[in-house]
Amino acid sequence: MSFDDAVSALLGRSTEKLLPTEFVLALLKLKIKELGGKSVFLDGLPRESDQISYSLYFRELAGYTDAADLFVLIDIPESVIDERIKYRVICPLCNTSRNKKLLITSKIESDSADNEFYLVCDNPTCRGARMEPKEGDNLGINPIKGRLLKDEEIIKTVFSLHGIPKILLRNHVPAAQAKKYFDDYELTPEYSFEWEKEEKKVKVIEKPWTIKDDNGVECFSLLAPPVMVAMVKQMAEVLKI
């Protein structure tokens, strides 16, 4: 890839179009050489079919480390991704991300001008900054639908590979089985808000959040900690540590 093509790809990137593989690999090789032999997680790789073989042999290509290779695959329903995008808000100062429906801050306020509730950034250095939605997030997964379909095909290909350990994670659990395997505090709650006129403050209402998975089964979405615990347990088995 020429320099001009690389610059053009970078400037023309969007949520719908991925950067060329050659460009991504060049950036990765530059970055990991700065890490001095530490183990590396490459989040979001592979994202193209040709990146599967590159990711398998990236260690040799970069001359990096003798650490073991493994794939981490996580199954997340499209309905969960859609809600995470639609209700995402960002602090304009520190860029912290939260979600008005699924991951709120400690302080919620109401804008009397438009009768809308909003999250206040918890970072003290932001001094009560109002968290705002990102442009286009109201469209949910629609702009990235093509990428999600491609991800599904790539995961199927990775499953067919032999000789490379795989860690398999699920973000969700069928509602009918959730109580058997998880405690309530491990399940993602849903938040809504009401204005209490007498006390002049926002009331936060919390309830269990259920979604339909890609097969139409009613499920709970797990919070990050139980999924992380599952990953660490499987990683210990794969690496024999």
Rank of each mutant, 00 (worst) to 15 (best):
Ser160His: 05
Val173Cys: 01
Glu153Arg: 15
Ala175Arg: 05
Ile167Thr: 02
Phe182Trp: 07
Pro143Trp: 09
Lys166His: 14
Glu194Asp: 06
Asp184Tyr: 09
Asn171Ser: 14
Arg170Asn: 05
Phe159His: 09
Tyr185Gly: 02
His162Pro: 00
Ala176Cys: 10
Glu196Phe: 03
Leu168Tyr: 06
Trp209Cys: 10
Glu186Ala: 08
Thr188Cys: 10
Ala176Asp: 12
Thr157Glu: 04
Ile164Val: 15
Glu152Trp: 07
His172Leu: 01
Lys207Glu: 10
Asn142Thr: 15
Tyr181Gly: 08
Ile164Ser: 07
Asn142Gly: 10
Val202Met: 01
Ile154Cys: 05
His162Lys: 15
Val158Lys: 01
Leu149Val: 12
Val204Pro: 07
Glu194Lys: 14
Lys201Ser: 08
Glu196Gln: 11
Pro174Gln: 04
Gly163Leu: 09
Thr188Met: 13
Val173Ser: 00
Leu168Trp: 05
Asp213Trp: 06
Lys197Asp: 06
Leu161Lys: 09
Arg147Ser: 06
Pro165Glu: 03
Thr188Val: 09
Asn142His: 13
Gly216Arg: 11
Lys166Glu: 13
Pro208Ala: 04
Arg147Thr: 09
Lys212Gln: 13
Lys203Phe: 02
Arg170Pro: 00
Lys212Tyr: 12
Ile144Thr: 02
Leu187Ala: 01
Tyr181Ala: 11
Gly216Val: 07
Trp195Ser: 05
Ser192Phe: 07
Ile211Asn: 06
